[in-house]
Nucleic acid binder design. Structure first.
Lengths: 205, 205
DNA sequence: ACATTGCTGTAGTGTTTACTCCAGTTGGAA
DNA sequence: TTCCAACTGGAGTAAACACTACAGCAATGT
């Protein structure tokens, strides 16, 4: 067995993925041509096909890697201390920062998610899966932060929280760096907490 | 001058646009091939090029028409009566219904908006323009519904309202018809009003 | 009757696409 | 030294791509 996989190989793989994430973020799924990726990373097409089965496989790998990058950027909030508002705001701030630092995952993912082609690309499936997992985690956190809420309310709250995050992200993608994503996410956190309060008081009655 | 423009012409144009909106909504900008549009609408490529200058022109026309369709579906709320919450909710409900009935505009527009290619397609420009106009109208309405707010607050509120709408729309596009968009928009309207109240009380102090 | 206009049908153009074949090259294991 | 596995390079293929040239036809204005 080889203990080192030959240094050049993994580096080339990274270079290919780097080039692909850039081009796919610019031009979408169909617009990402192997020739363009090859030109950008400096490796011939045959190398790309040595590392990846086909174009679909390449894009799925890009989604996976950019998800990991984003996950690392999120750095889940420390411990469960403070008021619900403080905790939710801390979480929102973290997510906002991570989306500024590592926007590729959500941008590419949303592009793929909005497409509805007959034969779904694997990249889309992967995105929806990891997104589902992330959503579930948020649901869990919401359940502990707002213990008064019933399951349905928690789900609704999570849906709204995620949708708001998506929308604010899109807003920043459209309007550029001038948008203060962290500030908007703080407002969002506040409103989500309002909603939680409203839901709790309703279910008590 | 001809009083009738030759019936077949306008009908063909519509058929081409219908086919294009369907394919573009499935496969994005690059994925929309003239051959596929031609096959779907039953007209040869030369007819498409007689009606439209090139592919870019075609997609821009699709955006324009789907915007008009959507605008017609929105049917702006009647008159300025009721509490702010009632008025905002009525508006949100209208928008939600229109997005269910005519989702093409926003779906296609968001797909184009998320792409950032070096030479921007005209369709993207058109989308961002009409979106800007729509946003401005919402800003005006917000200004009259919440007269206590200063300009900055109204802008922030509008941004948040639009972003929430985008995000909830994306959520429905991903999770399908099971999502009750109207209900989510009602919640959204409520939270936006909360935010307005919070902002007003802060500026008074 | 005749030319004009609006549109369709056929048959292309050259370029780009995803993907393949296979002959190198190179570093490490035996 | 020999050998193999891990890659790279270049050359190539068939299909799909956006787009064009142009002939033909049916209705209309004169």
């Amino acid at each position: 067995m080889t203990r080192k996989k030959r240094a050049n190989g993994v580096e080339s793989r990274q270079r290919i993925l780097d080039a692909t994430v850039e081009i796919a973020g610019e031009r979408g799924y169909e617009g990402t041509s192997i020739a363009a990726v090859s030109a950008k990373c400096g490796l011939p097409a045959s190398s790309i096909y040595w590392h990846f089965k086909d174009k679909d496989d390449l894009i799925a790998a890009v989604i996976e890697r950019s998800f990991e990058t984003w996950l690392a950027a999120v750095e889940l909030p420390g411990e469960e201390t403070g008021t619900p508002l403080e905790r939710v705001t801390a979480m929102a701030t973290n997510v906002a920062k991570s989306l500024v630092d590592a926007p590729d995952f959500l941008r590419l993912g949303l592009m793929l998610a909005l497409e509805r082609r007959p034969t779904e690309p694997r990249g889309r499936t992967v995105f929806l899966q990891v997104r589902d997992i992330a959503t579930q985690k948020i649901t869990e956190v919401a359940g502990t932060v707002f213990p008064d809420l019933d399951e349905d309310a928690v789900r609704t709250l999570t849906t709204y929280a995620v949708a708001g995050a998506d929308g604010l992200f899109v807003h920043r993608e459209i309007h550029g760096d001038a948008v203060d994503l962290v500030a908007m996410f703080e407002l969002h956190a506040q409103l989500v907490c309002d909603a939680a309060g409203r839901m709790a008081s309703r279910s008590k009655r």
